[in-house]
């Protein structure tokens, strides 16, 4: 069933259009930076963006920091919100279920296909940004001397590559949390757009609550709490605490919302 879902995903023109749209913003930022040579002031703008002008190999990370707060989760919410509600609206859900496909297996396959979508998107963004960063940005003499870690020491190229992949993996896991919330909502509502908007409300609300001191008691449970912790991978030594907490939190979100999606969908009347 997973293979079937992947074929559906990869053959849909919308998948690729979404990926291109997500990729467009960091590409535009990269080109503008290269043309104007105007970096953001320190302390403003997304993480790593001010460092990109001197070291182009950091641009994949800056690109990740650009798309992670909003663009990527929106794309994921739309794709995952489509999962059940979209098939129901198109009428294909009933034909899938009478094939028969077990409802649990159907949900697993949907989540797996969204995961592949996230991986694809993140990789496309990272690769485009890397090419752009090396070709247009940065200063070669600095790059050959090694990259500066956030803590001021230098990172060798294998270290940088390894940590960049860890960061991408972490971002993918965070997006899986978003996807599971959207999947659950997708089993609840009739319209795919409703599920996507509901998911956006969750992470925008979470991001808002994080800025309030009053929400101190719940902040460690908010889904977006540790999203930007991938920056900690580039400190020296790596600060694992938030990353560990972030991984556990996202795993908990995936477990809870997947269980809820299953609980809701397993005996739901498929009446449309």
């Amino acid at each position: 069933m997973i293979a079937v879902e992947l074929r559906k995903l990869l053959r849909s023109r919308r998948t690729w259009a979404t990926i291109l749209l997500v990729d467009a913003l960091p590409t535009l930022v990269g080109v503008l930076l290269a043309v104007t040579d105007l970096g953001p002031r320190p302390g403003e703008g997304p993480a790593f963006l001010s460092a990109v002008l001197t070291d182009g190999t950091l641009f994949p990370l800056a690109a990740l920091a650009i798309v992670l707060p909003l663009f990527l989760p929106i794309a994921v919410a739309i794709t995952a919100g489509e999962a059940v509600a979209g098939e129901a609206a198109a009428g294909t859900l009933r034909y899938v279920l009478v094939r028969p496909v077990s409802r649990l297996r159907f949900l697993v396959a949907k989540l797996a296909s969204v995961l592949v979508f996230v991986v694809l998107t993140v990789l496309v963004v990272a690769v485009t940004a890397y090419v752009l960063g090396v070709l247009l940005l940065g200063d070669q003499s600095v790059t050959t001397a090694g990259t500066t870690s956030v803590s001021g020491s230098s990172l060798s190229t294998p270290e940088l590559v390894g940590r960049t992949f860890l960061a991408l993996g972490y971002a993918i896991l965070c997006m899986l949390g978003v996807a599971t919330i959207a999947l659950f909502l997708s089993t609840c509502v009739a319209s795919p757009l409703g599920a996507a908007l509901g998911t956006m409300a969750v992470f925008v609300g979470s991001a808002l609550l994080l800025t309030l001191d009053a929400s101190d008691a719940v902040r460690d449970y908010l889904p977006t709490r540790y999203w930007l912790a991938f920056v900690d991978l580039f400190r020296d030594p790596i600060l694992w605490r938030d990353l560990q907490a972030g991984v556990l939190l996202q795993v908990a979100y995936v477990a809870v919302f997947f269980a809820a999606a299953w609980a809701n969908f397993a005996t739901k009347d498929v009446a449309d």
């Binding site: 077990s102 409802r103 649990l104 809870v256 269980a259 809820a260 299953w262 609980a263 397993a266 005996t267």
Partner: peptide
């Protein structure tokens, strides 16, 4: 999980799992 057990569980018991 076997589909049979999924059907056998009532919505209430599934939600208590959640």
């Amino acid at each position: 999980m076997r589909p049979r057990t999924v059907w056998a569980m009532t919505p209430r018991s599934r939600w208590s799992v959640v």
